[in-house]
Simulated assay, not measured.
Amino acid sequence: MTQSLKTINLSFCKLTFANNYVISEINQGVVLTKELFNEAGSVLFDHFKENQKYVHIAYRRSDYNVNPVDYINCSDYPNMLAVAIVTNTEAKRSTANFEKAFFPKPYEIFNTLEDAVSWVENNIQNL
């Protein structure tokens, strides 16, 4: 795995940045809304400068909820090429598959963080 460059803790999550991806770990019990997407978005815009492409890896270790309609707003993040979801439970995998229908960019689901990072590093040029 590529060594992280920096970690930022927000009120609802931790963001760990590498050269071409960010790993988010949302806190237990959070309802992820457009407002929280925007809070994280300001940090993403600061880190990934204009035209710097990246993939968002959502490391789902905690239980939280996402308003799937808010995925429609991902066009607000033009540098984000794709999303990789990491989960190792069937319930979270089922939720991720449901959310995939609302996401207009490439969206892959993985069992391990290592698999997701490997996918990003091997596919970033083709996304």
Rank of each mutant, 00 (worst) to 15 (best):
A101P: 00
K105Q: 11
N19W: 04
Q3C: 01
Y107L: 06
I57E: 00
V31I: 15
F98Q: 06
A96D: 02
N27D: 15
Y64S: 01
I124Q: 05
A96I: 03
M1H: 07
Y107M: 06
Y21C: 14
Y54E: 04
Y64E: 00
K34E: 13
V43F: 07
N20I: 13
N20P: 03
S62N: 15
N122H: 08
E108H: 15
G41W: 08
K92F: 04
Q125H: 13
V120E: 05
V30D: 07
N67G: 03
N67T: 13
N20E: 13
S94N: 09
V120T: 10
V55I: 14
A116N: 07
S75R: 12
F48L: 03
T112H: 09
D70V: 14
P106Q: 08
N65H: 09
Q52W: 00
F103R: 05
V66Q: 06
V55D: 02
M80N: 11
E108S: 14
F98M: 11
G29K: 07
T7H: 04
K49A: 01
S24V: 10
V66L: 15
N79M: 09
R60K: 10
E90L: 13
C13K: 13
T89Q: 05
S62F: 04
G29F: 09
T95H: 04
Y107A: 07
F17S: 01
N9A: 14
S4M: 06
E25D: 04
V30L: 07
Y71A: 12
F12M: 07
L36C: 06
I124T: 04
T2K: 12
M1S: 15
I124M: 11
Y71R: 05
V86A: 07
F102R: 01
V120C: 05
P104T: 10
F37A: 13
T16W: 08
N88F: 05
E50H: 03
V117G: 02
N122G: 01
Y77C: 02
E39R: 09
A84E: 05
H56S: 12
Y21Q: 07
H56K: 09
R93L: 08
V43A: 14
E121R: 04
K34M: 13
K100G: 05
